[in-house]
Computed example of a mutant assay.
Amino acid sequence: MSADIIIRRIDAEALPIVQQLAEEIWPHAFDGVIQRHQIEIMLGDIYALESLENEMNSLGHVFWIARHEHVDAAFLSAFKRDDVTWIKKLYVLPDRQGMGLGKALIRTALEHFGPSRALSLNVNNGNTNAIAFYRHNGFEIEAEVPVTMGPFEFTDFVMTRTL
């Protein structure tokens, strides 16, 4: 990991940082993938502090924030089910992409959860940039599944990297 990247596991008190990063990142990450009004509604639902706290406290999701050059620039949440580590959320500020933050966060989650058979995630099937990042990092499309995010229905790819 680069010396200018610092990753820290966060508790519920730091979830407003995740919320703020999501509000900044999502309009870029989903531009041309989902409609602007959908982004706003989903951010309000999925990134409400109560929703994030529920993921952390009731569902066992662990959250990390990556700082790059003194700026909170990325976040990841993950959990382990059976012998598979699942990435739930992975987002990087647009101007910090390509600097190793996503890879460093993935490594951190894998180290935290210990040995796993695989690393898996869901990604919107129209999010070509994210799909390309995951393919570049050894993930393959395993399935196509319907998902509900907030009040909207989408289709995701389940992508998996065998470990």
Rank of each mutant, 00 (worst) to 15 (best):
I34N: 05
T160N: 08
V145Y: 01
A29V: 06
L49M: 03
T108R: 02
V145G: 00
M149Q: 14
K88N: 09
I5C: 08
H61V: 01
F79K: 10
A118K: 07
A132R: 07
D11W: 05
R117G: 13
A104I: 01
K80C: 13
P151L: 11
Y134F: 03
D11H: 11
E153N: 07
V33Y: 11
G126L: 03
E142K: 15
W26A: 13
M159G: 03
R67Q: 15
A22W: 09
G114N: 02
E140G: 12
V158S: 09
V33G: 03
S116L: 01
A66C: 13
T85N: 01
N122W: 00
I131G: 00
A3Y: 14
V71M: 05
L110C: 10
P16L: 08
N129I: 13
A14P: 12
S58H: 06
R96V: 12
A132V: 02
Y134I: 01
R36N: 04
T128S: 07
A73H: 05
A78E: 04
E144C: 12
S58E: 11
L101P: 05
L119G: 07
K89C: 14
G102K: 00
Q19D: 04
R8N: 09
I34K: 12
S58Y: 09
I6T: 05
L119V: 08
Y47V: 14
T162G: 08
G32Q: 14
G98D: 00
D83I: 06
R9K: 15
Y91G: 11
D156C: 11
L105W: 08
D31W: 07
E69W: 02
L119M: 10
V145A: 08
E50A: 03
G114A: 04
P151K: 09
D31M: 08
G32V: 00
N57Q: 13
P151T: 02
R135S: 11
H68M: 15
F75N: 01
E142D: 09
A130F: 02
V147A: 03
L76F: 14
G102T: 00
